[in-house]
Design a protein around this nucleic acid. Sequence first.
DNA 1: CGACAACTTGAGACGCTTCAAAAAGGGTGG
DNA 2: CCACCCTTTTTGAAGCGTCTCAAGTTGTCG
Lengths: 218, 218
Amino acid sequence: MQSLKRRERSLDAGGALIHEGQTDAPLYTLQQGWAFRYKTLSDGRRQILNFLLPGDFIGVQQKMGDAAAHGVETLTAARFCVFQRDALWELHRRSPLMGFNVTWLTAHEESMVDDTLLSVGRRSAEERIASMLILLFKRAAALQADAGAGGVAFPLTQQHIADGLGLSLVHTNKTLRKLERRGLHHIADGRLHLRDVKALARLADLWGDGRPPQRPLV
Amino acid sequence: MQSLKRRERSLDAGGALIHEGQTDAPLYTLQQGWAFRYKTLSDGRRQILNFLLPGDFIGVQQKMGDAAAHGVETLTAARFCVFQRDALWELHRRSPLMGFNVTWLTAHEESMVDDTLLSVGRRSAEERIASMLILLFKRAAALQADAGAGGVAFPLTQQHIADGLGLSLVHTNKTLRKLERRGLHHIADGRLHLRDVKALARLADLWGDGRPPQRPLV
DNA sequence: CGACAACTTGAGACGCTTCAAAAAGGGTGG
DNA sequence: CCACCCTTTTTGAAGCGTCTCAAGTTGTCG
């Protein structure tokens, strides 16, 4: 894997890693920080497809030599590992195990998008937010040793939450406040605390639990 | 690839290939017919994640030895090719090229879900339907030689369209009729005709065009 | 202290949902 | 070939969840 690595790239918070429609973007691995993939319509409406945390793979979706179908932007300062575009084939050829892992990672990311699609298509605003909070909490918690105590790092603004759930900023704010006043969660100083996971899970109709599956490292 | 094949399986229209939550479902390849992946909430609300056409791969999303995160049902009579669960790793090991193709296919499917998520999250009902009609038309047309002439095969009911776009059945019907009365499309006898692709594309804000990318065969 | 981004809150409008019911097909058995 | 059932499509009407518009407040950074 190391031999295919080209170089590293660091971005500040709010930086654009890949522009929508950019051609020939390389492949990346997110090493540190948070980011997200998104698409926009020509009048500016934006949908965030999913959030990226350390360990995530970036850019497999775009067909070789084609324009990127989505943009990628950072939420925090972040460091990426850069691979050349055709490294994907090289990687499969040189290490089937790594290739298998990439397939796994891609499939796993798709299943996260599936979850969001279910939310956006069929859940109410309250339910969507409850669902997102739980899912993001789990992912963030899996990455930090002292999970739970002071909550987990949570660098999203309400605009990001809105764009990730297909809601307007205003309604997102009102719903978030409602849940908070009910004592289900609390967000402050860039940290998310879940005050009543049971209630949130019930709201979101999220039976699934279990720790996040052990992910392969690439 | 053939050596990993276990057997075939045929289903009538409306048959369940994989039940939601089923454990240890095998891997499949769709050889003939149409199907779809879906998820449901406990109160019955259903979201169709994407539609499956011949050549699509099924089941990579579920983590090994885990419960299926989504169900799969047929829209028409269909024939599937069955592989055992761990064939995925075997396949990568024995043929990196095939492994690469599976990664490609998985990534491609994710990008279709991405498109739908953009629709469901940010497009109006009219726009969503226009977008789905164009995208499905292209996929169906790519599979039949005489595309265009008498339209393409289109086995979805309005309920499927609704569930795929996060809309209610009633509103889907009204919107569909509105577009049809405006002369944008026509659906009859299980065939879809696009009467004004330009107008549909403009409505859906779909600049992308081009023939569907040449897909690897697995 | 000024400027700018993020968060809050209120109010009215509208798109979509739900409820209800009828019409149109499509298949099956008598 | 008709009577019947069940699925799919169609239409109307009322309600509400979410959106848009419009300020105001709070927090942060230079």
